[in-house]
Amino acid sequence: MSFLSLRRSETVIALVLIAAMVLIGLINPAFWSLSNLFSLARSNVIVGLMALGVLVVMISGGIDVSFPAFAVAAMYLTIQAMLAWDWHGVIGPFALASAIGLALGLVNAFFVSGLRMIPLIVTLGTAAAVRGALLGLVGTSQINIDRMPKELIAFGNTTLIDLAGPGGTHFGLSAMIVAYLLAAVLVHLFLTRTLLGRGVFALGSAAEAARRVGFNPTTIVFAVYGLAGALAGFAGLLHGSMIWLANPRDFVGVELDVIAAVVLGGASIFGGRGSVLGTMLGVFMLVMVSNSLILMHIATTWQRIVVGGIIITATTVTALRDRRQIAQ
């Protein structure tokens, strides 16, 4: 299969993406300015990290709508812990946030695998329970920049390239995209080069066949939801570090954008299909379109219509594609 074949959904998305970039650039040349491109790259990080987790869940034949709740819980609890214990550092807190996400993800896996319940219902329930408990028991007040741990702010503020803009301002390429790219490579290697990763595809394509050739569905389901939870926890704390703010009401409705991006990237909600590259392209497409509405002189109130339209278009295309393949 050639890399540039039109039968690869990644190639198609890449072509659509390029066409969209040219179009936006024609409407407003400011799109191609370095500061806009850098800010676009930065906006990819959080959505992208979450999308990698959703991708793995979706390939296994499941779905997850609880990750934004897990992300916000991991972020808020970790930062509260840092403030309460006067705890400093960067690696430790990120490990804690990922561990919180992992633990919550395993709860999802328990309900999905142990009790054989539809993932959408399970994750709706865990999302409500976690979000409600966080706001009801831990707190509703946001932690502003004056109380945010300095190390996290400094970390989130790291840049790869730093340029001087007009009027003495600075803009740079956030180093956080390295974290995103690293996670993407690791998830790609997990999915394509490990036995467990191949098991994720097997389970999503044909659960019974996967069981008969010796894959353990329980292990796979726990790995998949655990990974999605851990990625969400990590992304949550990273989000807090990048915006210098810990808001326990953050990430409301993000699940729609992330699921849209993953579906746009060619993953099938029925499982068994999807790739890291496609997902990254899907995330880029979605982030670019919603960020460029202002550049295209469209009111931001149109954003939800655009996102919804993207979901419907992408699912229609994949549904037609899947049907054609069945027909062949």
Partner: peptide
């Protein structure tokens, strides 16, 4: 008709309906 799975179809259309209301 298009055989989109109900989760995704209504997730997307719900966004569009809310979006129209917002506009």
């Amino acid at each position: 008709r298009l055989r989109i799975t109900p989760i995704l179809a209504t997730l997307g259309s719900g966004q569009v309906f809310t979006g129209i209301a917002l506009v």
